[in-house]
Design a protein around this nucleic acid. Structure first.
Lengths: 349, 349
DNA sequence: CGGGGCGCCGAGAGCGCTCTCTCCCGCTCT
DNA sequence: AGAGCGGGAGAGAGCGCTCTCGGCGCCCCG
């Protein structure tokens, strides 16, 4: 039980160093216009006293918090069924840490939570927000908007209606999907089917669009609805097999779906990849590497997405003080950044 | 671009309601000793002005932050290779939210990060900390200790040397392991092997201990070292099969390991569960349900662990103001809480 | 009918910091 | 040698809130 020593204040440091509070403040922060000798004395005093600035007092006057909120809707199964979100968090955390910002995590579920988040954001407790909004009708974006906090979105918001002040980072779902389907086509497959994700999510919509892009080039495509779960993949695969017993390629909207499809294919006696080639999406390691055979899939650099989101936000914050509101927008801040994907070939193609 | 309206202050609300700052403050907080009529007037003014208290100003005087840090070592592969951590976070978040506390996430990797975390914690920016420390030689616990912040640990700390002021929440790794092995024994299996986790983690140590508890009762046990990865599981399984070709039961330290073992068993022509029965640990859904056949495993309620950690910490905080330091300890605060596990039987046994 | 108590409310003093404003000192320029 | 200038340091005013304290009115009891 160490004594609850009252933490030393600026005042204490000043006294010990024999200078004024103002001087200590100058040294502790940027330290400009303080003679080396004095600065050194101050630094020593800080060291000896173990002084740490009181962030609350500082925020009170500067109106900055050096803190950023990360807002995510918790019921999103994908957020908790795979390491996706954790990786994104890691990227965000790294970038924020590098700029001495704190990460305040806000997980929501349900209406009342939205109100809470809105209040928190509007309360000016953080300098900006990173918001994950995957659904087309997500109330979060609007809420954040009206809270007037600089924001960067993770994933293309559903209502990206050409407004120029929405900043987001997404991976190239459409391009990745095209690559996947072209890969199948390049293997000589001609009857290629797609199992979609839930179409109220932009990522699923974009992957479907990518599939269509190529299928339109190369003939009609077979499509069955899925929901990003293995169960959904199984159902869709059965349906597809019934409709077109001789299909020879499947592009699944994500790896979980592909895993389900794979099971049905085996159950129905199809050999993979000989009879049917399969491509997934995400390269969600614990799944993609564990399927039998290991899954060919489209990888996105999730951690980099997180890092980029944070970087964009912080950049907007630096300048943004003027505009202050709505978004980390600016002449040279791109409104949407789309990260490339890469095809990872394993054994299902 | 909404105008950056200066947020209304207590003063503004007071003026509008025709009362003093003190009265508004009373209403905004607990509201005791204010007549209903006045309180109502104040509430209306708050509403109309959209007043939100300035947390910085409040913290400055109360020395409370209503914020808790969650500290986790990021290189922990398990944290980012599975949804484990995310689920724990969810539990924590729910509990904190219910008590109007914020969650500040601190991810560390490497030495310099430790220093940073130490400084942050010592800086008194948060009221307490939830620390995940899985390794025996983790520097984090000591660091947190010396920062003098009330703390609850996730997972039994390696140095739980009987000190009574370390509060932690863990799941019953040892008991769960015993259940798993007894289950195998109950199925008539007599040559049961164990693939361990990395033995610098208490969870792996405890699971091994559980295995030994039962094997000591029922005869000697075959043990091979693993590392919580599928690759490690494969290696260990091969070794075990070489040493004891007629083994008929395997208890793997976690599901990933079991998945690897399963693959080797199939490759070596063993039927599961007919020839060899397999039990995992964790019930990590995307893995346990996707193995072939689906894995019998030991489930822990991870979200509940998180929630409990938060609850314990908050409870300690309420009272703890006096002691202030070291830990959320108190006469009726248990030092270690161990959550029960349950065996989930699927198709590998 | 008077005094004491109690419940409500306002005044005011800070919490620890930043930042502007002013002062002072040393130097150059005329 | 005196005036002017500029850079370095200190004084002091808050930032928005909480909380103690004192005053005032009301009720109750003697």
């Amino acid at each position: 039980m160490t004594e609850t020593a009252p933490r030393p204040t600026l005042e204490a440091v000043a006294e010990r160093a024999g200078v004024s509070r103002a001087t200590v403040s100058r040294v502790v922060n940027g330290a400009h216009g303080v003679r080396d000798a004095l600065a050194e004395r101050v630094r020593r005093a800080v060291e000896e006293l173990g002084y740490v600035p009181n962030q609350a007092a500082r925020s009170l006057v500067t109106r900055r918090h050096d803190a950023v909120a990360v807002v995510a809707a918790e019921p999103e199964t994908r957020i908790f069924a795979d390491p996706y979100f954790a990786q994104q968090l890691r990227g965000i955390s790294k970038e924020l840490t590098a700029h001495d910002n704190q990460l305040v995590l806000l997980l929501t579920e349900g209406r009342e939570d939205h109100a809470r988040v809105g209040r928190y954001l509007a309360g000016g407790h953080v300098d900006g927000a990173l918001v994950f909004s995957l659904h087309l009708d997500d109330p979060l974006p609007g809420l954040v908007r009206s809270a007037g906090v600089p924001t960067v979105f993770g994933g293309r918001p559903g209502w990206d209606d050409g407004r120029d002040d929405v900043v987001y980072v997404d991976s190239d779902n459409r391009g990745g999907a095209r690559d996947a389907v072209r890969h199948l086509a390049g293997l000589g497959r001609t009857r290629i089917a797609h199992i979609t994700g839930p179409l109220d999510q932009t990522s699923a919509v974009d992957r479907l669009a990518g599939f269509r892009d190529v299928r339109t080039e190369a003939g009609s495509g077979l499509i069955a609805p899925g929901d990003f779960t293995p169960g959904g993949g199984e159902r869709a695969m059965r349906e597809l097999l019934d409709r077109c017993p001789d299909l020879d390629g499947v592009f699944a909207a994500n790896d979980l779906t592909a895993a389900g499809a794979l099971r049905v294919l085996r159950e129905r006696g199809r050999r993979v990849p000989e009879d049917v080639a399969v491509v997934g999406f995400d390269d969600m390691l614990p799944v993609a590497e564990q399927t039998d055979p290991p899954l060919t899939t489209v990888r996105q650099d999730i951690e980099e997405m997180g890092r980029l989101m944070a970087r964009l936000l912080l950049r907007g914050l630096d300048r943004g003080a003027g505009a202050g509101n709505a978004a980390a927008t600016g002449p040279d801040t791109p409104s949407g950044v789309v990260l490339p994907t890469t095809l990872v070939r394993r054994a299902t193609t």
